[in-house]
Write a protein that binds this DNA or RNA. Structure first.
Length: 288
DNA sequence: CTCCAGGTACTAA
DNA sequence: TTAGTACCTGGA
């Protein structure tokens, strides 16, 4: 394993919090957390030892360029925090999850992952992703054991709906297949990178199975658009409870307000706020 | 067994 | 534009 000095990165919140569905954590005898994750490009193993990160990438080893970009170590974290820390709600959310970050997932992975997500529990999404990886993902060797990478869109595009149904994706099978087909060869990503936020969102929503929320998730987690607020049920609860909105205000209006209020970093603010209200260890009771 | 889960597409007023 | 509803399916 390689060693890199890296204090203040909250891996459990960042990797397991619901932006990615392809990380697992284990704890060794001495209580250290180890994370193993898979994307369509690399598998990764991570462990903290004091303030040092122990890491390795597979099948290409020692790929710090790739990993540091994935973990978004390129951003000025403290500057982002200082911009978004505008009121007591976000301030508390940041304090509760110090070191939480947004990942830069491969675009294709975000597309496929969130196409799986509609009306599914996180647990269910994780299961679908793993079944698809086993069925369609390349095998890599990780320290002697076999691991499947996240399936490539090229492979998913040629899968039959029947194949996909075996991965328990249900009615999302057709959406995944069609979405994957559009993404083959990086065509879709390349097109979207040349568009403004609003244009790109509209373009994404032309895909079957992609509405407001999933489009926003793909923008944030797959295209590093830092000023977008994916409003899921938790997002709406934040908007209602802390900022005085109601559902009747409409998705776009609330989204625009967040973008202006958090001045370019609404995605980061949303990550703190929504993780905060969701719980994730800090129980927040929410009556249905 | 029934109900719901990080939504979306389709239909009818 | 706004409401209501079906959609696959595992898990509670």
């Amino acid at each position: 394993m390689n060693k890199t000095f890296l204090p203040h990165y909250n891996f459990s919140e960042t990797l397991l919090g619901g932006q990615s569905f392809s990380w697992d954590m284990s704890v060794d005898e001495s209580g250290n957390q180890q994370f193993v994750g898979f994307t369509s490009e690399r598998a990764v193993k991570l462990r903290m030892s004091g303030e040092e990160l122990l890491w390795q990438t597979y099948p290409v080893h020692d790929d710090w360029d790739w990993l540091s970009r994935y973990l978004r170590l390129d951003v000025d974290y403290n500057q982002i925090i200082s911009v978004i820390e505008k009121d007591q709600h976000i301030s508390r959310a940041i304090k509760e999850r110090p070191g939480l970050r947004i990942l830069a997932q491969p675009f294709d992975d975000a597309l496929v992952g969130f196409l799986c997500s509609s009306t599914k529990s996180i647990k269910g999404i994780r299961q679908c992703i793993r079944l698809m990886a086993e069925k369609f993902g390349e095998v890599v060797k990780v320290d002697g054991t076999r691991l499947h990478l996240f399936p490539r869109v090229e492979r998913l595009a040629e899968a039959t709906v029947e194949d996909l149904l075996e991965c328990k994706v249900g009615f999302r099978a057709r959406n995944i297949q069609e979405g994957a087909l559009r993404a083959v060869g990086g065509r879709l990503e390349e097109e979207l990178r040349g568009l403004s936020d609003q244009e790109a969102i509209e373009r994404l929503k032309e895909l079957r199975g992609v509405g407001n929320k999933i489009a926003d998730c793909i923008m944030v987690y797959g295209l590093q658009r830092d000023n977008i607020t994916p409003l899921d049920v938790w997002g709406w609860r934040v908007a209602e409870r802390y900022y005085g909105f109601s559902k009747s205000d409409g998705y776009e209006k609330v989204n625009e307000w967040f973008s202006e209020y958090f001045e370019g970093y609404a995605s980061w603010a949303a990550q703190f706020l929504f993780e905060g209200i969701r719980g994730g260890g800090h129980s927040v009771e929410v009556s249905g």
